[in-house]
Design a protein around this nucleic acid. Structure first.
Lengths: 192, 192
DNA sequence: GTCTATAGGGAGATAGAC
DNA sequence: GTCTATCTCCCTATAGAC
């Protein structure tokens, strides 16, 4: 059983995660984090030896959080549409909270310029998300709640890529464009 | 009438565009470009005073190229599906050529950490792409070639965001995931 | 755990010679 | 147009005091 992270360590992870989603991994520094926390550069290095270590820790924490979220939702909610809407809500929250984009998206966009140690975690993250989506879509179609052609894994790619892409587009074209894309996904999958 | 850009200037734009799509704007430097061209740092500054100027020039050249592409295609091709497939092919080429992602996507992902002067161009680019897609989808549905619910502009968001997002996902999860997403878009829009 | 101080490197950018 | 040389700044990272 892992110990509860001390306050500073958690605050560093929070700040790094926020800046990752706001500016990208290549556009924030230890100095930026230190400034936000009111400490000095070297304090961050005490908790995370290198920026690559910090990057991996941010991704792995996000993966654990999503796993807990999915486990709880799958246990408590039976309605496929409400499960999918809960997933949509994660992205709506990102949009609202300062125009963040999804961590998975920015890590893929910067995939060839982030430290090599982070890439395995970034890949594992998108697989986590897609597996949950695929399972939820499969279950929902069996129950007659969703309608779509092809396999659930195929539709999961369109849904996941649309959410990720539309969050990014919303930055350059206006937040309401994300809602447009979301509503179109709902229209496509609503049984006729 | 603008003069034909000299060789070096064009080569700088080519290198910058490639690195933008491969690594992101924040992950390449004047030194990287100079090295690839076999010249020195300062030579790049002669052609583009600042990196922001270079960034704007790359985006504006891309926009002009897309406008010419669209004009030619709209004049020569009547079949809506073949027009859409030609658009898909742009993204397939990116995927094949070293795992590039679309310029629009990386600029949006880094939107809050690129020079302010570049943002207007980045926004104009996504509007160009979406306007062409919207027009093509509208025309195709009128002719009975496409099937989708909602408005053409709504479907254009899903198609555009899927292409952009799926190219990124393909990096972290395998190139074949892009083809999966593409095929699902075709299935969704094929008249039943 | 956090600090000061600093090493060492890379970034964008400019001046002036050729 | 391209070069050498250089400025200034910021970055990641470490050593050692407190």
């Amino acid at each position: 059983m892992a110990a509860v992270p001390r306050e500073t360590k958690r605050e560093i992870l929070d700040a790094a995660e926020a800046m990752l989603q706001e500016r990208g991994f290549n556009a924030f520094s230890y100095h930026h984090i230190a400034e936000r926390l009111g400490v000095k550069n070297a304090a961050i290095h005490y908790h995370f030896r290198s920026k690559a270590d910090l990057g991996v820790a941010v991704i792995e924490r996000y993966r654990r959080r999503f796993a807990r979220w999915a486990e709880k939702l799958d246990a408590e909610e039976r309605d496929p549409w409400l499960k999918l809407e809960a997933f949509f809500q994660i992205y709506l929250d990102f949009k609202i909270r300062g125009g963040k984009i999804c961590p998975s998206g920015i890590l893929q966009a910067e995939y060839h310029s982030i430290p090599e140690e982070m890439r395995a975690s970034a890949s594992a993250l998108i697989v986590d998300l897609q597996e949950w989506l695929t399972g939820t879509l499969a279950q929902g179609r069996e129950q007659g709640a969703f309608q779509f052609p092809g396999e659930p894994a195929d539709q999961a790619m369109v849904v996941g890529a649309t959410l990720q892409g539309a969050l990014q587009i919303a930055r350059a074209w206006g937040p309401e464009r994300f809602d447009t894309a979301l509503e179109q996904l709902r229209r496509q999958m609503r049984p006729s």
